[in-house]
Design a protein around this nucleic acid. Sequence first.
RNA 1: GGCGCUAUGGUGUAGUUGGUUAACACGCUGCCCUCUCAAGGCAGAGAUCGCGGGUUCGAGCCCCGCUAGCGCUGCCA
Length: 520
Amino acid sequence: MTTRVRFAPSPTGYLHIGSARTALFNWLYARKSGGRILLRIEDTDLQRSTEESTRSILEGLEWLGLDYDEEIVFQSDNAPKHREAALRLIEAGKAYRDFTPKEERADATVKQGIIDRAREQSAEGRNMRSNPFRDLSPDESAARAAAGEPFAVRLKVPREGRTRFVDAVYGEQERDYAEIEDLVLLRSDGHPLYNLSVVLDDIEMRITDVIRGQDHLTNTHKQILIYEALGALPPRFAHLPLILAPGGKKLSKRIHGEIVSLTTYRDAGFLPAAFRNFLALLGWAPTGVQFAAYATLGNEEVPVDERVGELMTLDELVRNFSLERIHRNNAIFNFDANNPRRWTDDKALWMNAEYIRTIPFAELQPFIKAELRAARLWREEYEEDEREWFEQTVELIRQRFHTLKDFSEQGRAYFSDDFDFDPAALKKNLHKEPRLREWLPALASRLEAVEPFTAATSEAALRAFADEANVKAGLLINASRTMLTGQSVGPSMFEVFEVIGRERSVRRLQSGVAWADFAG
RNA sequence: GGCGCUAUGGUGUAGUUGGUUAACACGCUGCCCUCUCAAGGCAGAGAUCGCGGGUUCGAGCCCCGCUAGCGCUGCCA
């Protein structure tokens, strides 16, 4: 039987990084086993579901490079079928009508209310089968319903027995029926509830393996009960450990903000491959990852079998993936909201930088193009006449960049004459030595005569000039860096000269802008 | 409260059927390289493997107890 898995997010917000990882693992498993991965939008909670959220989920998946097979299923479309199924369960004696009036609950306090009630009930020894309508005669039940009395439909959980299943990650699971309430299948307003809808849809979509967050582990027993009531065979289950915030707390939008949203990483200049790689390593690792990351991603000279580092291409992830290697303990996503340098997990940041400086230029190019275009720095020539120059420049600057944003921010001066000077750089490299105001234009004149204009020749010219003026070359070098790029840090200055070119270099060295607000 | 799950340095992880000084990556510190900053190289700090018992010649790996964290416990998903 072909493996069929599904990713089933509820569209009640952006795509959470935990959900993104669930999607990734489902995708990896499907591709590894030559099966199919389906997408189902669980929008049964009409109040909270939004189309915008659905769009953002689709965008997120696309960004991560996770495609899906077959048509998207919208769970709400199946609501009528789910309702009928619940009603049939009543006919079959597997469920019953509960005429208890609906209890209204304020959304903000539900959680605490539920815990409080559970605590009380367990203290006085709760009987999960105590609902007075459970044993109402079918005739009376039907009569009251026919008279228009509203009712919810509850599953009639057998009095004696246990559910059991073997989770691919967590192993054997068992639960006594006595611990499971007669769960509601259908609300009194006719809306089918999560557990029912999931089971019905998974059956209809012929899902063979359900891979989802560990928060569903204990609820799986309820779903198994529904499968049994329906006379259907449950799929295999694999639950994933959760991703927690520092301190082991739940990672939530309200407390942690945009850090949990996948789009944040896209917008912050992450390469999808890098973030995907990072996500894959949260709660999973290939056998014996004990080798240092191999030097170059996508380096064909490194035999595939020896690539067991942490840096893996999509193909490698697929090849190495297995449910058995998934951990059982929750992972902590490390970040420090008060530290801009560590706004997100260190390792994610490192991995992105690693990808940016090591993937083949051709793979990186489209992302840089998009970034420069967004910053209005892109020129079509970069793909035609100036293609070589563009590649040389990118190769030079990407070595020390961490995100795609750096290409339009720190790297702005390479693509535009309109760039800002870092005040700290001005102070440190220029204003400290007023004589630079004379030296730099003089240096510019020397450079004008250099032929050809390359890193080597510009270096020779600069060093000769330094000797004659009796200044340290380093002083001129650092000053030039600031004049040419606006910054105090960057690639080797002579490489920068070559890439910026004679004309622009000379102009920038002669420019007075950097001295504009210099008082001394 | 009940039930379930988990527990290796700050974080992510490796630790094969129990066997010598607990491994890798990120981060951190120092040095080298050097025109700056990265990268890279070298060196280093950081873990009594949650705690307490037990089995064993020997336990991070097995057993028991405890603790902590997380999850579920809804006419939310």
